[in-house]
């Protein structure tokens, strides 16, 4: 009976994994199809959709914009979030627990609600520049990922090391940089990676903030899927998946996925 139960669970696990990968594999398959329609099974193999990416200007622009926004917002969150996390961990500010919850709370709000709030606020404050608005909103989106991982790393960090560095002649900022930063690097890498992905993939917040000429990749992709779905979209999606896998592997090499997953 127990054996049957465990076999049953394993079967479900196998099916679940197959199920989760289905749409991803389909996208990969279609991107190599020789046909412009999404027939299954595909009639033949070709790389023409990858070749055609070279002409997809608006798509490439969207990739570039999303990369910039994700990288900048992650970097800003890393700096602001880490400084804040240090103050929280060291009890330098009152109500540390509440502050930590506040900084991580954008993750708990529905994305669309956040997006609407940003849209309204940008209007009320007269903030017209799409790029700046997007960047500010994405710092808010990425902040919770940084807060969670960095707080977890800091809780394992011995702050006497910072004192030791100061007594050996480094100023407080230099001590943080030379001792704290290298020691919580795994937290930075995993938090940074997830923050980057969260920003790069964000749809529900960005949809309210983009304009005709400034579109992030998810918006541009969805437009294309709705308007004129063709395997070019599949090709760019396949490259995105590839990029994600490469990023995960690089991070694994840097700090070890085990260490990342445990943080």
């Amino acid at each position: 009976m127990a054996l049957f139960g465990s076999l049953f669970c394993r079967l479900i696990l196998g099916l679940v994994i197959a199920f989760l990968f289905m749409p991803i594999l389909i996208v990969l398959t279609v991107s190599f199809s020789s046909s412009a329609v999404f027939a299954f099974p595909p009639p033949g193999f070709s790389l023409r959709w990858y070749a055609s990416l070279g002409n997809a200007d608006s798509m490439l622009q969207a990739v570039w914009l999303s990369t910039q926004i994700a990288a900048l917002s992650t970097a800003i969150s890393l700096v602001l979030g880490t400084l804040c996390a240090i103050a929280i961990t060291r009890g330098m500010i009152p109500g540390a627990k509440a502050v930590a919850t506040f900084m991580a709370s954008p993750l708990m709000l529905p994305g669309l609600v956040l997006g609407i709030a940003f849209l309204q606020a940008a209007r009320d404050f007269g903030l017209r520049d799409t790029y700046t608005t997007l960047l500010i909103a994405h710092v808010v989106i990425t902040m919770p990922f940084i807060m969670r991982t960095v707080l977890a790393s800091l809780s394992l960090f011995d702050f006497a090391m910072v004192d030791a560095a100061r007594m050996l002649g480094r100023s407080y900022p230099a001590a943080l940089w030379t001792v704290l930063v290298p020691n919580i690097l795994p937290g930075f890498v995993s938090g940074g990676l997830f923050a980057f992905i969260a920003s790069f993939d964000n749809y529900p917040v960005s949809i309210f903030l983009v304009d005709v000429r400034t579109k992030t990749l998810p918006i541009q992709l969805l437009n294309q899927v709705e308007m004129s779905p063709d395997p070019t979209v599949a090709a760019i999606s396949a490259l995105l998946i590839l990029g994600t896998i490469v990023a995960l592997i690089v991070c694994d090499r840097l700090v070890g996925l085990k260490r990342m997953a445990s943080i």
């Binding site: 749409p23 299954f40 993939d201 995960l248």
Partner: peptide, 28 residues
């Protein structure tokens, strides 16, 4: 664990796009 986790890192738009292809009359 990695196989369960990996799909989370793939864009929702991409996955949903894959799903619409699957759902077609000539889909999988």
């Amino acid at each position: 664990f990695a196989l369960i986790f990996l799909p989370l890192t793939v864009s929702v738009v991409v996955k949903t796009f894959g799903l619409t292809i699957m759902m077609r009359r000539d889909g999988i």
